[in-house]
């Protein structure tokens, strides 16, 4: 009798397992998307609005570096990246015999945030560079109160960190070696940077323009002392006058499933680009640009 019960249980377990696998095969393919925290909400929205995408999609953050790393390690299908792929990553991919395709899907502006009670509301790129390298350490040197500056930065593998470093600290010079000051606080996400700026009148940090709201103040930025200070609005990014601007990419393996091709085509279509605009990013296509104005 005891053995019979055991036997029945075993049959039941196998039956469940069988149903499970059958169910999976029948329903869909799974698609892993991983990478930039900045693009997380955007891609989430794109996946939800794309009714043709009949797949088990999982989207995780971790940073552009993480996404590209797992694309190279073949643990994800699409990598979201807020920077272009680096040479050393390309070499690693070649070593593992993986050919990578690049799709530019939109643009993002980085805003420099300060606390609402901070009287400073504009800086030049050079001043920003000096602040983030701790050559300027007090707000009074840039026209503010006599307070120490607390520098907030993202972690070294975040695409936001790398882009800000290349654009502001190194002025797009590939051979430069400037780095963020060791005194900067490495925050684990854009949200934590926002939270600290919201609470701390000494702090300043950089995040995507999607984070700008009435709780904090975004600074107007000028390329140099003689040019105009530009506030990071959507229009100023669209017409290219705002200077801290970066492309957003999707990377895939060239030997991809068909479903991924259709997804990327959807992202690049008018409908997809419109969703990009709705989630506070900047689309690539001119058609949509006209609709904004």
């Amino acid at each position: 009798m005891r053995y019979l019960k055991f036997f029945l249980l075993l049959i039941f377990v196998f039956f469940c397992l069988y149903m499970q696998t059958r169910h999976d095969n029948h329903k869909c393919i799974s698609v892993q998307i991983k990478g930039s925290d900045t693009m997380l909400n955007l891609i989430q929205a794109l996946v939800e609005k794309n009714s043709k995408l009949k797949a088990n999609v999982s989207i995780t953050g971790g940073g552009s570096g993480a996404g590209l790393a797992s694309l190279i390690n073949a643990t994800c299908d699409i990598a979201m990246s807020s920077r272009s792929i680096e040479k050393r990553e390309k070499i690693l991919a070649e070593k593992k015999n993986i050919k990578i395709a690049e799709f530019k899907i939109g643009l993002d502006g980085l805003a420099v945030l300060v606390n609402k009670n901070n009287p400073v509301d504009k800086l030049t790129l050079n001043q920003l560079k000096d602040i983030f390298m701790a050559r300027i350490t007090n707000w009074k040197e840039v026209g503010g109160e006599d307070r120490k500056i607390v520098i907030l930065s993202r972690e070294s593998n975040s695409g936001t960190h790398i882009f800000f470093k290349e654009r502001v600290l190194r002025d797009n010079n590939k051979n430069a070696i400037e780095e963020f000051s060791v005194k900067s606080l490495m925050m684990p996400s854009s949200q934590t940077i926002y939270d600290e700026v919201f609470r701390n009148p000494n702090a300043l940090g950089y995040v995507g323009i999607g984070f700008i709201n009435s709780g904090v103040k975004a600074l107007s930025i000028a390329v140099d002392i003689d040019s105009e200070y530009i506030y990071p609005t959507l229009e100023n990014i669209l017409n290219g006058t705002y200077s801290i601007l970066r492309p957003l990419y999707l990377y895939t393996n060239t030997k991809q499933k068909d479903i991924i091709k259709t997804f990327i085509n959807f992202v690049l279509s008018d409908h997809g680009q419109k969703i990009i605009l709705e989630t506070d990013f900047v689309p690539l296509k001119c058609k949509v640009k006209n609709k904004v104005k």
Binding site: G62, L92, N157, S158, M186, P188
Partner: peptide, 21 residues
């Protein structure tokens, strides 16, 4: 002063690093 610990360095960077680099 703000500091960073060894454990925090590993935890915050391990997820984003290319294997065998």
């Amino acid at each position: 002063d703000p500091v960073r610990t060894m454990t925090a360095t590993i935890a915050s960077e391990m997820g984003e690093v290319v294997r065998d680099s």
